[in-house]
Measured scan of single mutants.
Amino acid sequence: KTVHVDGVEYRFNNPEEADKFVKRLVKEKNGNVEVRGDTYHVE
Score class of each variant (00 low, 15 high):
Asn14Thr: 15
Lys1Thr: 15
Glu34Val: 12
Glu9Cys: 15
Val5Tyr: 09
Val5Ser: 00
Tyr10Lys: 05
Asn13Val: 07
Val35Cys: 15
Arg11Ile: 13
Phe21Ile: 03
Val42Pro: 10
Asn30Ile: 07
Lys27Asn: 08
Val5Glu: 01
Ala18Leu: 07
Leu25Asp: 02
Pro15Leu: 09
Val33Thr: 06
Tyr40Lys: 11
Arg24Cys: 15
Tyr10Val: 05
Arg24Asp: 15
Glu16Asn: 02
Gly31Leu: 12
Gly37Leu: 08
Arg11Phe: 14
Val5Gly: 00
Glu28Cys: 14
Asp38Met: 02
Lys27Cys: 15
Tyr40Asp: 07
Val33Gly: 04
Tyr40Gln: 11
Val3Phe: 02
Leu25Met: 10
Val33Lys: 06
Arg24Met: 13
Gly31Arg: 06
Lys29Tyr: 15
Asn30Thr: 06
His4Glu: 08
Val42Lys: 09
Tyr40Ile: 14
Val5Gln: 00
Val26Tyr: 10
Tyr10Asn: 03
Val35Ala: 08
Glu34Leu: 12
Lys1Gly: 02
Val42Ala: 08
Gly37Lys: 07
Gly7Asn: 04
Asn13Met: 08
His4Leu: 14
Arg36Tyr: 13
Thr2Met: 06
Ala18Gln: 03
Phe12Arg: 00
Lys20Met: 13
Asp38Trp: 00
Lys27Phe: 09
Leu25Gln: 03
Tyr40Pro: 09
Asn14Leu: 05
Val3Gln: 00
Asn30His: 10
Val22Lys: 07
Tyr10Phe: 06
Val42Arg: 02
Tyr40Val: 14
Val8Phe: 07
Gly31Asn: 08
Asn14Trp: 03
Val8Lys: 08
Lys27Tyr: 12
Asn13Thr: 10
Phe12Asn: 03
Tyr40Cys: 05
Val26Gly: 03
Glu28Asn: 05
Lys27Trp: 05
Leu25Gly: 01
Phe21Leu: 06
Asn32Arg: 12
Leu25Glu: 07
Phe21Pro: 03
Lys23Gln: 13
Asp19Pro: 04
Val5Ala: 01
Glu16Asp: 10
Val33Cys: 14
Phe12Ser: 03
Val5Trp: 11
Val3Trp: 01
Asp6Asn: 14
Asn32Trp: 14
Val33Ala: 06
Asn14Gly: 03
Thr39Phe: 09
Glu17Met: 01
Lys27Pro: 04
Val5Pro: 00
Arg36Ala: 08
Ala18Ile: 02
Glu43His: 09
Arg11Met: 06
Asn13Cys: 15
Tyr40Thr: 12
Lys27His: 09
Glu9Ile: 09
Val22Arg: 09
Glu43Cys: 15
Glu28Phe: 05
Pro15Glu: 14
Phe12Gln: 01
Ala18Asn: 01
Val26Ser: 07
Lys29Glu: 08
Glu9Ala: 03
Glu34Gln: 14
His41Lys: 07
Tyr10Ser: 06
His4Ile: 15
Val35Phe: 06
Val3Arg: 00
Val3Gly: 00
Glu34Arg: 08
Val3Ala: 00
Tyr10Cys: 09
Gly7Ala: 00
Thr2Lys: 05
Asn30Val: 06
Val8Gly: 00
Val5Lys: 00
Glu17Ile: 00
Gly31His: 13
Thr2Asn: 04
Lys1Ala: 13
Asn14Val: 03
Arg24Ala: 15
Gly37Ser: 06
Lys23Glu: 15
Thr2Tyr: 05
Gly31Asp: 06
Glu16Met: 04
Lys29Ala: 10
Asn30Cys: 15
Arg11Trp: 14
Pro15Cys: 13
Gly31Phe: 14
Glu17Lys: 00
Asn13His: 06
Lys1Pro: 07
Thr39Gly: 12
Lys27Gly: 10
Asn30Leu: 07
Glu28Trp: 05
Tyr10Gln: 05
Ala18Met: 08
Pro15Asn: 06
Val42Gln: 10
Gly31Thr: 09
His41Trp: 15
Val3Thr: 00
Gly31Tyr: 14
Arg36Gln: 12
Lys1Asn: 07
Lys29Phe: 15
Glu28Thr: 06
Lys1Glu: 04
Arg36Thr: 08
Thr39Tyr: 10
Arg36Glu: 11
Asp38Gly: 05
Glu17Pro: 00
Glu17Tyr: 00
Asp38Glu: 06
Glu28Val: 05
Asn30Lys: 08
Gly31Trp: 12
Asp38Asn: 07
Thr2Trp: 06
Glu43Ser: 12
His4Ser: 10
Tyr10Met: 04
Asn32Ser: 14
Gly31Pro: 08
Thr39Lys: 08
Thr39Trp: 11
Tyr10Asp: 05
Val26Asn: 06
Thr2Asp: 00
Leu25Ile: 09
Glu43Tyr: 14
Glu16Arg: 01
Val22Ser: 00
Asn30Trp: 08
Phe12Ala: 01
Asp19Gly: 01
Glu17Cys: 14
Arg24Phe: 08
Lys1Phe: 15
Lys20Asn: 14
Asp6Trp: 03
Tyr40Phe: 12
Val26Phe: 08
Gly37Ile: 11
Glu9Leu: 06
Pro15Lys: 13
Glu43Ala: 11
Lys20Leu: 11
Asp6Tyr: 03
Lys1Val: 15
Val33Ser: 09
Val26Met: 14
Lys20Cys: 15
Arg11Ser: 12
Val3Leu: 03
Glu43Met: 13
Glu28Gln: 08
Val35Pro: 07
Glu43Leu: 12
Asp38Val: 04
Asn30Pro: 04
Gly7Phe: 00
Pro15Tyr: 10
Glu34Pro: 04
Arg11Ala: 07
Val8Ala: 02
Val3Tyr: 02
Pro15Ala: 14
Asn30Tyr: 12
Pro15Arg: 07
His4Ala: 05
Asn32Ile: 14
Lys20Phe: 06
Phe21Cys: 13
Phe12Glu: 05
His4Thr: 13
Val8Met: 05
Val22Phe: 09
His41Asp: 12
Lys23Thr: 10
Lys1Met: 13
Asp38Tyr: 01
Phe21Val: 04
Lys20Tyr: 09
Gly7Val: 01
Glu43Trp: 14
His4Gly: 01
Thr2Ala: 03
Glu16Val: 03
Thr39Glu: 13
Gly37Thr: 08
Val5Asn: 01
Glu34Cys: 15
Val5Thr: 02
Thr39Met: 10
Lys27Leu: 12
Lys23Ile: 04
Arg36Ser: 11
Phe12Gly: 04
Ala18Lys: 06
Asp6Gly: 05
Val8Asp: 03
His41Ala: 09
Asn30Met: 11
Gly37Tyr: 12
